[in-house]
Write a protein that binds this DNA or RNA. Structure first.
Ligand SMILES: [Zn+2]
Length: 345
DNA sequence: CCCCTTTGACCCGGA
DNA sequence: GTCCGGGTCAAAGGG
C-alpha cells in the first residue's frame, strides 16, 4: 500500500503480491434494477477529473503519499467510428464474411467523413493488426460445439479477435482461423464466478476491472481490465455503447502465463497456471498479420444483437446468449510502459 | 476473509 | 495556458 504506486510504475510487482484469483466457473445472475440506461453513462466523470473540475481537491484522505512514478506509454490507438459508419460499411463486409476471413472484412478501410475525423488522432501509432480467431482453446471447442449460427449471421457482427501489434510480432502468438463459424460463436464469454466476477474472454484469461470511462464519441463507455494473474500485465479495454452493448474489445500486452482453464479449478488457476493444452502458440496455427499502419484499417464492429440488458450485469447474459458479437482486437505494445503519474504527497 | 465491481478523483499528453 | 480525452488508482460496497 505504501509504495505500491512505485511498483506500478515498474509495471509489475504490485499485483504480483496481492492478487490471487480464482477461476470458478459458475453462472449466477444477479440483477439490480437500475433503470438508467442513459444515466449510468452520464456520470461523465470521464473527464471530470481531468478537465472540467480539476480545480481543487488534490488528493483524497486516506491516500498515503503517493510518489508514484508511473511511466505510461501505452497509447493505444483505436480508430473510432461512428456506428452509422460501420453499419453501412459493415453491411457490405458482412457478406464477405461468409466467404472471406473475418479479418479482412473487419479491417477494411472504412472511409467516412466522420471516421476520418475521429480517427485522425488515433492514428499516431502504426499497429499491426492481427486477427485471431479462435485464439484460444475455448474457441476451438466452442466452434465445434456451436449448434448453429444465427440465421442472420451475416447481419450479426462477426466474432473476431484482432490483435494489434505495435512492433514486435515475434512474441505474439496468434492463431487465426478463417472460419465463418466463429462468427456464430459467442465471442466473449464472461464467466461469472459466484462472487467474483472474473471474466473469461476468448483468451480464457481472468480479468479484473480497474476502471471505466465514459466516452462521448462514440457515445458509450469504456471499461478497463487487467489480467488477474500476478505477473501478467495484459490489459483489456472494452467498448460499449450507450445501451451497454459491447462493441469492441481491445487487448493490450501479452500474458506471461497460460490461460487458466475454464473448468472450475478454483483458485489455482492463477497460481498454478495449468498449462493449457490448446495454447495457440504451441500449435502454430497459421497466423494472419495485417499491417495496420493505417488507422483506416483498424475497424470496429458494432453489435446490435444484444438486447438491452441492465447495465451492470450484462456479463452473465452475454455469456448465456452467446450472441455477443464483439470485435476483439489485441494490441501488443512492445513496450508497455505504464503511465507515470506523479503525485507528490 | 478474499476478491471483484463500481465510481469518483487524478494525472498526463495532445490539441 | 487551457481544455479535453484517455488511462489509472483507490475507497467503498458487495458477494
Ligand atoms: Zn495474463
Amino acid at each position: 500500500m505504501e509504495s505500491k504506486q512505485q511498483q506500478q510504475s515498474l509495471d509489475s510487482l504490485e499485483e504480483a503480491g496481492k492478487t490471487t484469483s480464482s477461476a470458478d466457473e459458475e453462472e449466477e445472475e444477479e440483477e439490480e434494477e437500475e433503470l438508467n440506461e442513459v444515466d449510468d453513462d452520464d456520470d461523465d466523470d470521464g473527464d471530470d477529473g481531468g478537465g472540467e473540475f480539476r480545480v481543487e481537491p488534490r488528493k483524497q484522505p486516506g491516500e498515503s503519499p503517493k510518489n508514484e512514478a508511473r511511466v505510461k506509454s501505452e497509447t493505444l490507438a483505436v480508430a473510432s467510428l461512428s456506428e452509422k459508419d460501420f453499419k453501412s460499411n459493415f453491411a457490405a463486409s458482412a457478406h464477405l464474411l461468409s466467404e472471406v476471413p473475418v479479418d479482412y472484412a473487419l479491417l477494411r478501410p472504412l472511409e467516412s467523413p466522420n471516421f476520418k475525423d475521429q480517427v485522425g488522432k488515433s492514428h499516431q501509432q502504426a499497429l499491426v493488426s492481427v486477427i485471431t480467431e479462435a485464439a484460444q482453446s475455448q474457441l476451438q471447442n466452442e466452434v465445434t460445439e456451436s449448434p448453429q449460427c444465427p440465421t442472420s449471421s451475416s447481419e450479426l457482427s462477426p466474432t473476431s479477435v484482432t490483435q494489434s501489434i505495435s512492433s514486435d510480432p515475434t512474441n505474439k502468438k496468434l492463431s487465426l482461423v478463417a472460419n465463418t463459424n466463429s462468427a456464430c460463436m459467442p465471442e466473449v464469454v464472461r464467466q461469472n464466478s459466484s462472487n467474483r466476477k472474473s471474466i473469461l474472454s476468448t483468451d480464457g484469461y481472468n480479468w479484473r476491472k480497474y476502471g471505466q470511462k465514459q466516452v462521448k464519441i462514440p457515445q458509450g463507455s469504456r471499461s478497463y481490465y487487467r489480467c488477474t494473474y500476478s505477473e501478467c500485465h495484459a490489459k483489456k479495454i472494452e467498448f460499449s455503447d450507450n445501451s451497454n452493448r459491447m462493441i469492441e474489445i481491445i487487448c493490450k500486452g501479452e500474458h506471461n502465463h497460460d490461460p487458466p482453464r475454464r473448468i472450475n479449478c478454483t483458485r489455482e488457476s492463477r497460481l498454478a497456471l495449468p498449462a493449457a493444452p490448446n495454447s495457440p502458440s504451441s500449435t502454430g496455427h497459421p497466423v494472419r498479420v495485417l499491417n495496420d499502419s493505417d488507422p483506416s484499417t483498424s475497424s470496429r464492429e458494432v453489435i446490435q444483437e444484444t438486447p438491452v440488458l441492465p447495465e451492470t450485469k450484462r456479463q452473465n447474459c452475454i455469456g448465456s446468449n452467446g450472441t455477443a458479437d464483439v470485435d476483439i482486437k489485441e494490441e501488443h505494445v512492445d513496450e508497455p510502459e505504464p503511465k507515470r503519474r506523479q503525485v507528490a504527497f
